[in-house]
Design a protein around this nucleic acid. Structure first.
Lengths: 227, 227
DNA sequence: GGGAGAAAAAATGAAAGAATTTATAGTAGA
DNA sequence: TCTACTATAAATTCTTTCATTTTTTCTCCC
């Protein structure tokens, strides 16, 4: 597949003209990361901007006492990295770690800023992406603030289903190496609690779990758990 | 003060040239809201975009079982409203309610989209604003996920201090009608718990509270509470 | 302008409930 | 085999829930 066709499939670049895309592509560099590898760290200066072509990346923040919080799970087509442009906030406020082997496009902050002013359509698109991130974060805030652990885990499972789930008959298959630890770090609880809830639901037949896979057998059950 | 000078003070418009500003101002309309008044509701279609000139606005989400969560507190210079442009997400995902009497600038979605493509500098600025919202939301996510109630309330007090606090000798004065209920809705706890913690801290001399005012007497104490 | 009554906000205690902590053990990939 | 992940249980801690009281603010009326 040509580079242009490749780029056209990325949400951030929809609406851009082919001749614009041709000029833009040169600024991006493809990079690959192994499962578990870190892409950049909280505090890194100017990590640049990343677009996921393939794979799953978790964006995490750590507290001073060593707790880890996953603030976002970025998947194919998603944008992450340092987006505060023209601000004196020089360093990343989160760490990016690949959850699977991953392929990404990378661009430096300065190059991206240059593109932004040159291609207004791109600026509109990135605004749109940023807004989606805000609304998604607000949804998570609501879940964390208003729901008990079961509701929060149900929320996250449904979010995962929406983002990376594949329908297979009656069930939705989430094929990704997401551990109970990850679920706990997304929902603000402990591994033990995440394990207890997941295994209870498995026993009760609402979900099924295997290595690197979570199947949702009863969506309605999960939806009803959310207040 | 002329309209142009007025606009130049708004963060969203910094970096725009005077002749650009002159053209832009016409698209914005000034509106005023009384304390407690709703600006728009979750589900409203195309509420447009608002910039706060004066006052404090809370952005809230409600759960199906009636709980309210304050996802953001917007203050002077902040932008809020429907920002997903060119997307098929036609309605607001949160409610905006003024916490004080407020003065805002308003622009319709379509007008704003027009401005964006016409003035790339504005697009860069709005991207920047959106990113700040994301990072702020992630900070809150971390707090909600990793900290106990005391730490969460401490976090919010420090956030308020940073946003709207005024130094007065050793203390920081937060002059705003923020109730314990509001604090609870920002930190995902109950009024009773918020009241208990605030009055305990008051007794212990770390904070002082009066009608429409919270004073932080010991920043270090609050900072130490945050993990 | 002041006072009465209503409404809203703050305060507090006891009991119940939810989730964490701590501990221990089994399982499956690498 | 070793490490990371999953599993389960009991005790403890934190927070909520429910019930009641006090304090403050608002508003209407004289």
């Amino acid at each position: 597949m040509g580079k242009i066709e490749y780029f056209q499939q990325i949400p951030l670049f929809t609406g851009l003209k082919v001749n614009e895309l041709e000029k833009i592509t040169g600024y991006f560099h493809e990079k690959e990361y192994k499962k578990g590898e870190y892409i950049f760290f909280e505090g890194d200066e100017e990590p640049g901007i990343y677009i996921i072509l393939e794979g799953l990346v978790k964006l995490i923040k750590e507290t001073t006492d060593g707790k880890t919080v996953i603030v976002r799970l970025a998947t194919k087509g998603d944008v992450f990295g340092w987006l505060v442009l023209g601000e004196n906030r020089p360093s990343s406020t989160y760490t990016a770690q690949s959850l699977t082997n991953a392929k990404v496009l990378h661009i430096s902050n300065t190059d991206f800023l240059r593109l932004l002013t040159e291609y207004p359509a791109l600026a509109v698109r990135i605004t749109c992406e940023a807004t989606k991130m805000v609304l998604e974060a607000y949804e998570r805030l609501k879940s964390l603030a208003a729901e008990k652990v079961e509701g929060r885990i149900a929320s996250i499972l449904l979010e995962l289903a929406r983002k990376i789930g594949k329908e297979d008959g009656d069930k939705i298959v989430i094929k990704a190496p997401i551990t109970r630890q990850d679920l706990a770090e997304m929902t603000g609880t402990t591994v033990e609690t995440a394990i207890r809830i997941m295994s209870k639901w498995k026993k009760e037949g609402f979900i099924n779990t295997e290595r690197n896979k979570i199947e949702i057998l009863d969506m309605d059950f999960l939806e009803d758990l959310i207040s």
